[in-house]
Simulated scan of single mutants.
Amino acid sequence: METLKVRIWRGDAAGGAFSAYEVPARENQTVLDVVSEIQREQEPALAYRFACRVGMCGSCAMEVNGRARWTCRTHVKRVAKPGEALTLRPLPHLPVIRDLATDMAPFFDKWARAKGSFQPKDAPDGAVPEDFAVVPPGSKPRREADAGIECIGCGVCYASCDVVGWNPDYLGPAALNRAWTLVNDVRDGARRARLDAVSGDAGCHSCHSTQSCTERCPKGLDPSSAIAGLKRSLFWDALLGRRG
């Protein structure tokens, strides 16, 4: 049986190095299959993360041959030609806990900084609304909000963003995409605070529009367009003197 060579980064926040492994090359083998086989059969101490295995949770994301991907939905044949090795690293731009497992806290902290939680317009101070707000499905704000709502917070766009690498304070594509969905949600009452949160040096204006986030989003979302939408909203609000 043919074998597949695999290089996996092993270490922690203090540093590490690559370790080499070999597994049988199988038909329809995913990268997550490979990592799981190595952990079960060769290296029980290997740390990595996964849950659903069907592209619903995003927790299995890591860098595969230089590109951030979901490993459960990535077949080996798509990323390595026959005879080529797999090189696996933890997601860039995030602290390493151990081996392929990263600390996602900075990623989600930036969601909070971007005011990524829904604030009901008709129920201030955390109160529960009396009834569901009716939003016409065909309205432009509804379509704008729906365009980015499917983000599951896997961190692939964040790990692929050059600006995050240059500026660790940058909010990143996922947090800004979330802010854009809420800016377009007519039920939300925190529009002004949210736009203020994404307007600083670490916000949407720092985006260089290289579109790596859009290119690599496993859900097919377009954070680049969301960030451009935030820039437009801030421009028109400043031009028209809107504060609400």
Rank of each mutant, 00 (worst) to 15 (best):
M1C: 12
T3K: 13
T3Y: 10
K5Y: 04
V6K: 01
G11Y: 01
D12C: 09
G16E: 04
G16I: 04
G16D: 04
A17D: 14
A17L: 05
F18M: 10
S19Y: 05
V23I: 12
V23A: 05
E27F: 10
N28L: 12
Q29S: 06
L32I: 15
D33P: 00
V34F: 03
V34M: 03
S36A: 14
I38F: 02
R40L: 13
E41Q: 14
E43S: 11
P44K: 07
A51I: 09
A51T: 09
G55Y: 08
M62Q: 03
E63T: 15
G66A: 13
A68K: 03
A68T: 06
W70I: 08
C72I: 06
C72A: 07
R73K: 15
R73V: 02
R73S: 06
R73P: 03
T74E: 06
T74H: 05
K77Q: 12
R78Y: 07
A80Q: 04
K81R: 15
K81D: 12
G83S: 15
A85F: 08
L86A: 09
L88N: 04
R89P: 00
R89H: 07
H93D: 04
H93G: 04
L94Q: 13
P95T: 11
I97E: 11
R98W: 01
D99P: 04
T102L: 03
D109H: 06
A112R: 10
A114I: 00
A114L: 01
G116R: 00
F118L: 10
Q119N: 14
P120M: 12
K121W: 06
A127Q: 13
D131N: 09
D131K: 15
A133G: 09
V135S: 03
K140V: 12
R143I: 05
E144W: 07
A145Y: 09
A145L: 07
D146W: 05
A147K: 10
G148S: 08
G148F: 02
I149S: 08
C151V: 06
C154R: 00
G155Y: 02
G155H: 00
V156L: 06
V156I: 13
A159C: 10
V164N: 00
V164I: 15
W166G: 14
P168C: 07
D169W: 03
Y170I: 01
P173W: 02
A175G: 03
L176N: 01
N177Y: 02
W180V: 02
W180A: 01
W180E: 01
W180H: 03
T181Q: 03
D185I: 01
V186L: 11
A190F: 02
R191L: 09
R194V: 01
D196E: 14
S199F: 02
S199P: 09
D201N: 15
A202E: 07
C207W: 03
S209Q: 13
S209E: 14
T210H: 14
Q211T: 06
C213L: 07
T214P: 07
C217W: 00
P218G: 05
K219S: 07
K219W: 04
G220I: 08
L221I: 10
D222T: 09
P223T: 10
S224W: 00
S224E: 07
I227W: 00
I227V: 14
K231I: 11
L234I: 15
L239R: 06
L240Q: 11
G241F: 13
R243H: 12
